[in-house]
Amino acid sequence: MENQLYFTTGVGQRKPNTINGRNIDCPFCKVEELDDIIAVQGSMILLKNKYATLRKTYQTVLIETDLCDSELSKYSKEHLYRLFRFAIDYWLKLHLNNQFRSVIMFKNHGPLSGGTISHPHLQIVGLEDVNYLLNYKREHFEGIVIKKCDFLEFNISTQPKIGFYEFNIRLSNLKVIDSMSDCIQIAIDYILNHFRYKCDSYNLFFYKIENEIYCKIIPRFVTSPLYIGYSIAQVADNIEDIANQIVNIYRKDLHN
Protein backbone atom coordinates (compact mmCIF):
# COMPACT_ATOMS: atom_id res chain seq x y z
CA MET A 1 0.00 0.00 0.00
CA GLU A 2 1.31 3.45 -0.94
CA ASN A 3 1.25 6.40 1.43
CA GLN A 4 1.94 9.07 -1.17
CA LEU A 5 0.45 10.31 -4.43
CA TYR A 6 2.33 10.95 -7.66
CA PHE A 7 1.74 14.31 -9.37
CA THR A 8 1.81 14.50 -13.18
CA THR A 9 3.65 17.75 -13.81
CA GLY A 10 2.82 17.90 -17.53
CA VAL A 11 -0.90 17.99 -16.77
CA GLY A 12 -0.38 20.43 -13.90
CA GLN A 13 1.37 22.90 -16.20
CA ARG A 14 -1.66 22.97 -18.51
CA LYS A 15 -4.19 23.71 -15.75
CA PRO A 16 -5.79 27.15 -15.96
CA ASN A 17 -5.27 29.36 -12.91
CA THR A 18 -8.05 31.88 -12.31
CA ILE A 19 -7.09 32.57 -8.67
CA ASN A 20 -3.78 34.24 -9.50
CA GLY A 21 -4.45 34.83 -13.21
CA ARG A 22 -7.62 36.90 -13.27
CA ASN A 23 -7.32 37.55 -17.03
CA ILE A 24 -7.84 33.83 -17.70
CA ASP A 25 -11.34 32.70 -18.68
CA CYS A 26 -13.00 30.44 -16.12
CA PRO A 27 -13.47 26.94 -17.58
CA PHE A 28 -16.41 26.22 -15.25
CA CYS A 29 -18.40 29.14 -16.65
CA LYS A 30 -18.32 27.66 -20.16
CA VAL A 31 -20.95 25.04 -19.44
CA GLU A 32 -21.44 24.20 -23.11
CA GLU A 33 -17.77 23.15 -23.32
CA LEU A 34 -17.75 20.86 -20.28
CA ASP A 35 -17.05 17.19 -20.99
CA ASP A 36 -17.57 13.95 -19.05
CA ILE A 37 -20.53 15.24 -17.03
CA ILE A 38 -21.68 12.68 -14.47
CA ALA A 39 -24.74 14.38 -12.98
CA VAL A 40 -26.53 17.73 -12.88
CA GLN A 41 -28.76 19.17 -10.16
CA GLY A 42 -29.96 22.67 -10.94
CA SER A 43 -26.88 24.90 -11.20
CA MET A 44 -24.61 22.18 -9.72
CA ILE A 45 -22.59 20.04 -12.12
CA LEU A 46 -20.60 16.92 -11.25
CA LEU A 47 -17.99 15.92 -13.83
CA LYS A 48 -14.69 14.16 -14.30
CA ASN A 49 -11.70 16.41 -13.74
CA LYS A 50 -10.29 17.40 -17.13
CA TYR A 51 -6.90 18.05 -15.55
CA ALA A 52 -6.35 14.86 -13.58
CA THR A 53 -2.90 15.49 -12.11
CA LEU A 54 -2.75 12.55 -9.70
CA ARG A 55 -1.77 9.10 -10.90
CA LYS A 56 -3.85 6.05 -10.02
CA THR A 57 -6.83 8.12 -8.94
CA TYR A 58 -10.33 8.90 -10.18
CA GLN A 59 -10.71 12.68 -9.97
CA THR A 60 -14.08 14.44 -10.11
CA VAL A 61 -15.19 18.03 -9.61
CA LEU A 62 -18.51 19.28 -8.27
CA ILE A 63 -19.19 22.80 -9.57
CA GLU A 64 -21.26 24.28 -6.76
CA THR A 65 -23.05 27.11 -8.55
CA ASP A 66 -23.22 28.96 -11.85
CA LEU A 67 -22.21 32.17 -10.04
CA CYS A 68 -18.45 32.40 -10.54
CA ASP A 69 -17.87 35.11 -7.94
CA SER A 70 -20.02 33.54 -5.25
CA GLU A 71 -18.72 31.74 -2.16
CA LEU A 72 -20.14 29.14 0.22
CA SER A 73 -20.85 31.55 3.09
CA LYS A 74 -23.21 33.47 0.77
CA TYR A 75 -25.37 30.53 -0.33
CA SER A 76 -29.04 30.45 0.52
CA LYS A 77 -29.99 27.72 2.97
CA GLU A 78 -31.84 25.87 0.22
CA HIS A 79 -28.80 25.80 -2.06
CA LEU A 80 -26.42 25.02 0.81
CA TYR A 81 -28.43 21.97 1.87
CA ARG A 82 -28.84 20.68 -1.69
CA LEU A 83 -25.11 21.05 -2.29
CA PHE A 84 -23.98 18.96 0.67
CA ARG A 85 -26.69 16.34 0.21
CA PHE A 86 -25.54 15.97 -3.41
CA ALA A 87 -21.81 15.96 -2.56
CA ILE A 88 -21.97 13.59 0.40
CA ASP A 89 -24.27 11.17 -1.44
CA TYR A 90 -21.83 10.86 -4.36
CA TRP A 91 -18.78 10.70 -2.05
CA LEU A 92 -20.32 7.84 -0.06
CA LYS A 93 -21.29 5.98 -3.24
CA LEU A 94 -17.66 6.03 -4.39
CA HIS A 95 -16.72 4.35 -1.09
CA LEU A 96 -18.62 1.29 -2.32
CA ASN A 97 -16.28 0.92 -5.30
CA ASN A 98 -13.70 -1.74 -4.47
CA GLN A 99 -11.28 -0.11 -6.90
CA PHE A 100 -10.43 2.51 -4.27
CA ARG A 101 -8.62 2.12 -0.97
CA SER A 102 -10.14 5.42 0.14
CA VAL A 103 -12.07 8.40 -1.23
CA ILE A 104 -11.36 12.00 -0.30
CA MET A 105 -13.55 15.09 -0.60
CA PHE A 106 -12.19 18.59 -0.11
CA LYS A 107 -12.58 22.22 -1.08
CA ASN A 108 -10.05 24.98 -1.72
CA HIS A 109 -10.90 28.67 -1.54
CA GLY A 110 -8.58 31.63 -1.88
CA PRO A 111 -4.97 32.30 -2.90
CA LEU A 112 -3.42 30.46 0.06
CA SER A 113 -5.65 27.37 -0.20
CA GLY A 114 -3.62 25.48 -2.80
CA GLY A 115 -6.34 25.81 -5.41
CA THR A 116 -6.16 27.16 -8.96
CA ILE A 117 -9.80 27.82 -9.96
CA SER A 118 -11.71 30.50 -8.07
CA HIS A 119 -15.16 29.35 -9.27
CA PRO A 120 -16.68 27.55 -6.23
CA HIS A 121 -16.20 23.79 -6.42
CA LEU A 122 -15.57 20.65 -4.40
CA GLN A 123 -13.24 17.85 -5.43
CA ILE A 124 -14.07 14.17 -4.87
CA VAL A 125 -11.20 11.79 -5.58
CA GLY A 126 -10.96 8.01 -5.43
CA LEU A 127 -7.48 6.83 -4.40
CA GLU A 128 -6.47 3.42 -5.73
CA ASP A 129 -3.42 2.79 -3.51
CA VAL A 130 -3.55 5.35 -0.68
CA ASN A 131 -5.62 5.09 2.51
CA TYR A 132 -5.80 8.59 3.97
CA LEU A 133 -7.02 7.20 7.30
CA LEU A 134 -3.49 5.93 8.01
CA ASN A 135 -2.72 9.58 8.85
CA TYR A 136 -5.85 10.03 10.96
CA LYS A 137 -5.71 10.70 14.69
CA ARG A 138 -8.94 11.05 16.66
CA GLU A 139 -7.50 13.83 18.83
CA HIS A 140 -7.25 16.06 15.73
CA PHE A 141 -11.06 16.31 15.83
CA GLU A 142 -11.50 16.97 19.55
CA GLY A 143 -11.95 20.46 20.93
CA ILE A 144 -13.90 23.14 22.75
CA VAL A 145 -17.57 22.64 21.95
CA ILE A 146 -19.43 25.37 20.06
CA LYS A 147 -22.57 23.32 19.44
CA LYS A 148 -23.53 19.81 20.48
CA CYS A 149 -26.81 17.99 19.92
CA ASP A 150 -28.07 14.59 18.88
CA PHE A 151 -25.81 13.17 16.15
CA LEU A 152 -23.67 16.33 15.74
CA GLU A 153 -20.80 18.21 17.40
CA PHE A 154 -19.16 21.45 16.24
CA ASN A 155 -15.92 22.45 17.96
CA ILE A 156 -12.58 24.24 17.67
CA SER A 157 -9.53 21.98 17.90
CA THR A 158 -7.51 21.70 21.09
CA GLN A 159 -5.05 19.43 19.25
CA PRO A 160 -5.06 20.75 15.67
CA LYS A 161 -3.54 18.79 12.81
CA ILE A 162 -1.56 21.70 11.36
CA GLY A 163 -1.90 24.35 14.03
CA PHE A 164 -3.56 27.38 15.59
CA TYR A 165 -7.26 27.42 14.55
CA GLU A 166 -9.13 24.46 13.12
CA PHE A 167 -12.88 23.86 13.27
CA ASN A 168 -14.36 20.36 13.35
CA ILE A 169 -17.83 18.95 12.77
CA ARG A 170 -18.76 15.36 13.61
CA LEU A 171 -21.88 13.86 12.05
CA SER A 172 -23.19 10.49 13.19
CA ASN A 173 -26.53 10.41 11.36
CA LEU A 174 -27.16 11.43 7.75
CA LYS A 175 -30.57 12.77 8.74
CA VAL A 176 -28.84 15.88 10.11
CA ILE A 177 -26.67 16.72 7.08
CA ASP A 178 -28.44 20.09 6.94
CA SER A 179 -27.26 20.90 10.47
CA MET A 180 -23.70 19.99 9.48
CA SER A 181 -24.08 22.29 6.47
CA ASP A 182 -25.18 25.13 8.74
CA CYS A 183 -22.11 24.68 10.95
CA ILE A 184 -19.79 24.62 7.93
CA GLN A 185 -21.31 27.86 6.67
CA ILE A 186 -21.01 29.48 10.11
CA ALA A 187 -17.33 28.52 10.39
CA ILE A 188 -16.54 29.89 6.93
CA ASP A 189 -18.48 33.12 7.48
CA TYR A 190 -16.60 33.63 10.75
CA ILE A 191 -13.21 33.00 9.10
CA LEU A 192 -13.86 35.41 6.25
CA ASN A 193 -15.77 38.16 8.06
CA HIS A 194 -15.19 38.10 11.83
CA PHE A 195 -11.77 36.53 12.41
CA ARG A 196 -9.38 38.82 14.27
CA TYR A 197 -6.79 38.07 11.59
CA LYS A 198 -7.54 39.05 7.98
CA CYS A 199 -8.15 35.81 6.13
CA ASP A 200 -9.29 35.22 2.54
CA SER A 201 -8.46 31.52 2.18
CA TYR A 202 -9.69 28.27 3.68
CA ASN A 203 -9.95 24.53 3.09
CA LEU A 204 -12.66 21.99 3.85
CA PHE A 205 -11.67 18.36 4.34
CA PHE A 206 -14.13 15.49 4.78
CA TYR A 207 -13.39 12.16 6.46
CA LYS A 208 -15.42 8.97 6.72
CA ILE A 209 -14.38 7.27 9.94
CA GLU A 210 -16.27 4.07 10.68
CA ASN A 211 -19.95 5.11 10.65
CA GLU A 212 -19.35 8.82 11.17
CA ILE A 213 -18.53 11.75 8.91
CA TYR A 214 -16.15 14.49 9.98
CA CYS A 215 -15.47 17.84 8.38
CA LYS A 216 -12.40 19.93 9.22
CA ILE A 217 -12.42 23.62 8.28
CA ILE A 218 -9.02 25.29 8.26
CA PRO A 219 -8.37 29.02 7.70
CA ARG A 220 -5.25 29.28 5.55
CA PHE A 221 -2.30 31.53 6.18
CA VAL A 222 1.37 31.00 5.39
CA THR A 223 2.06 27.60 6.97
CA SER A 224 4.19 27.61 10.11
CA PRO A 225 7.83 26.57 9.52
CA LEU A 226 7.62 24.41 12.66
CA TYR A 227 4.96 22.33 10.96
CA ILE A 228 6.73 22.29 7.58
CA GLY A 229 10.06 21.24 9.02
CA TYR A 230 9.13 19.16 12.04
CA SER A 231 5.38 18.40 11.82
CA ILE A 232 4.94 20.23 15.15
CA ALA A 233 1.52 21.87 15.45
CA GLN A 234 1.02 24.97 17.59
CA VAL A 235 -2.15 25.57 19.61
CA ALA A 236 -3.36 29.15 20.00
CA ASP A 237 -4.01 30.24 23.59
CA ASN A 238 -7.28 32.04 22.74
CA ILE A 239 -9.34 29.27 21.16
CA GLU A 240 -11.85 29.41 24.02
CA ASP A 241 -12.37 33.12 23.26
CA ILE A 242 -12.93 32.24 19.60
CA ALA A 243 -15.52 29.59 20.53
CA ASN A 244 -17.38 32.06 22.76
CA GLN A 245 -17.32 34.73 20.06
CA ILE A 246 -18.85 32.35 17.52
CA VAL A 247 -21.58 31.39 19.99
CA ASN A 248 -22.37 35.08 20.56
CA ILE A 249 -22.35 36.08 16.88
CA TYR A 250 -24.32 33.09 15.60
CA ARG A 251 -26.46 32.30 18.64
CA LYS A 252 -29.72 32.23 16.68
CA ASP A 253 -28.31 30.07 13.85
CA LEU A 254 -26.66 27.61 16.23
CA HIS A 255 -29.93 26.96 18.02
CA ASN A 256 -31.88 26.11 14.88
Results as ranks from 00 to 15, higher is better:
E2G: 00
E2Y: 03
N3V: 04
Q4C: 04
Y6Q: 11
Y6R: 09
T8S: 13
V11L: 12
G12S: 14
N20T: 09
G21A: 10
I24H: 06
D25I: 10
K30I: 09
K30C: 04
E33L: 13
L34T: 09
I37N: 08
I38V: 15
A39E: 11
A39T: 11
A39I: 14
K48M: 09
K48N: 14
Y51R: 08
Y51D: 08
T53S: 14
T53L: 07
T53F: 02
Q59H: 15
T60D: 10
D66G: 10
C68M: 09
L72Y: 05
L72I: 14
L72F: 07
S73I: 10
S73G: 08
Y75K: 14
S76H: 03
K77I: 08
K77V: 08
K77Y: 03
H79W: 00
L80A: 09
A87S: 11
I88L: 07
D89E: 10
Y90S: 05
Y90K: 15
Y90V: 03
K93R: 15
L94N: 02
N97G: 00
Q99F: 05
V103F: 01
V103W: 00
V103D: 00
V103T: 02
I104L: 07
K107M: 11
H109F: 15
G110N: 10
G110I: 11
T116D: 14
I117K: 01
I117V: 12
H121N: 06
L122C: 04
V125A: 06
N131Q: 06
L134T: 01
N135H: 12
Y136D: 02
Y136T: 03
K137W: 07
K137N: 12
E139P: 00
H140E: 07
F141H: 08
V145Q: 12
I146K: 01
C149Y: 07
D150T: 08
E153S: 13
I156F: 03
S157G: 08
Q159T: 11
P160R: 12
K161P: 02
F167T: 06
R170T: 13
L174G: 11
K175V: 06
I177V: 15
Q185L: 04
Q185R: 14
I186E: 08
D189Y: 09
I191G: 01
L192Q: 04
N193C: 07
H194A: 05
R196H: 14
Y197P: 02
C199W: 09
S201G: 12
N203T: 13
F205L: 11
F206T: 01
Y207R: 02
K208A: 00
E210N: 14
K216A: 12
I218D: 01
P219K: 02
S224R: 01
L226M: 11
Y230G: 05
Y230N: 13
S231C: 10
A233R: 12
I239V: 14
I242C: 01
N244F: 03
N244H: 06
V247D: 02
V247S: 09
V247I: 09
R251D: 14
K252C: 09
K252Q: 15
N256L: 13
